[in-house]
Design a protein around this nucleic acid. Sequence first.
DNA 1: TTTAGTCTTATTGTCGACAATATTGGCCTT
DNA 2: AAGGCCAATATTGTCGACAATAAGACTAAA
Lengths: 225, 225
Amino acid sequence: MQTPLLKPAITAADRVLLEIQRAIVEGDITAGSKISEPELAKRFDLSRAPLREALARLERCHLIERIPNAGARVVKLSTQGLLSLYQLRETLEGLACRLAAEHMADSEISELRALLDQHLSTQRVREGESYYQEAGDLDFHYRVILGSKNEYLINILCDELYHLVRMYRVQLGMNGPRVSRAFDEHKAILNAIANRDGELADLLMRRHIAASRRNIEKQLEQTGT
Amino acid sequence: MQTPLLKPAITAADRVLLEIQRAIVEGDITAGSKISEPELAKRFDLSRAPLREALARLERCHLIERIPNAGARVVKLSTQGLLSLYQLRETLEGLACRLAAEHMADSEISELRALLDQHLSTQRVREGESYYQEAGDLDFHYRVILGSKNEYLINILCDELYHLVRMYRVQLGMNGPRVSRAFDEHKAILNAIANRDGELADLLMRRHIAASRRNIEKQLEQTGT
DNA sequence: TTTAGTCTTATTGTCGACAATATTGGCCTT
DNA sequence: AAGGCCAATATTGTCGACAATAAGACTAAA
């Protein structure tokens, strides 16, 4: 059974939302640039009404910033923003792990274990191809978050912060060599969840994200400044 | 200096948002009821365009739930929802306290202390009047959250979860006798922040919110079931 | 030359109407 | 009589145009 949680973009506003989201995350629309409603409407060939709906949701996930009567700008990436974002992720995904250890069904856990093994093998085949690793990493986190069974937590992490995290990763070029270590950490987290040890799962996830943050920061000070 | 962080509702969509928010929180629009766009548009005497903008933001703060092409319903209160919400608040406001202990300026701390003393005195005068206590309580939490200086955290707690918390409190009739104890707990939290003891502040805030949650649960099982 | 003010221009916010989709009621079939 | 199918209705999604506001250019005065 495929997870039916991602609605397949029924309305036009949904479709254009996905397109713009991708464009912003991948830097196709430059960070910090001003957004022109008429221009985007023409570019995606629809009216301003659904476009504005999409912009409202983009603001919700912190990809753009709007000022009333003034317009919208694509968010600018900053060290401060990255720090704030990962601070929050540490706490929230830690909580997600603790709750997942309580609420995940045994079947979900074994599915997740299968997924990890699968990722490991495909990763061995495609060494260096960071895209798959990235997708796999996000998938793991995604499932744990869903396993928390807390609707608000799921909404915040999967709908609101998810794309911004991806934006930082993509635009800072995170193809780092942290791949194999991340796998081990995922495995350890999963074991804690399987043992219903929420406290340990929480701790391990916080460490895992902190390590990821330090990794990005290192990348940042090499590239930038 | 008054905090200029709440924009004074420039646009029509902003105004109607505030009105509908209040109406939902205070039960003027029944929980679980269906929302009719034409009806609300007529009721507030504006077009559907700004109304839909308002509805989008209401969905963002979990006061309504929308289904594409089907419509929107006011959220229903449930024990499960309350639990999820307070679970999240415990963690998030705990984090806010820890960060506030790091980032709040001394001036902000003394202002907050003054505010607490003021609340205490006015509360002694107006014993039983729960409204002021409620406002004061929210104000304290609000300031601590702002003190965290984490934009994402602030956004989540103040913009997205705040009104839902109020909705639970109002509609479950929270005028409880937890008043004086809450004051003491606030004081203790503030002291920890002033001592720059983030860990303690975190712990105390989590306990504070857990106590508040148990209080509401007790209220709930008296009223409901 | 700088600065203040005004006017032009462009963008956002709002409106009413149309198109597409879901819901409701009635009708027919079994 | 019950259940399913279809039409009628109502509601949502989308469109193009207008109004209100902000940004930018140009002029004029210090």
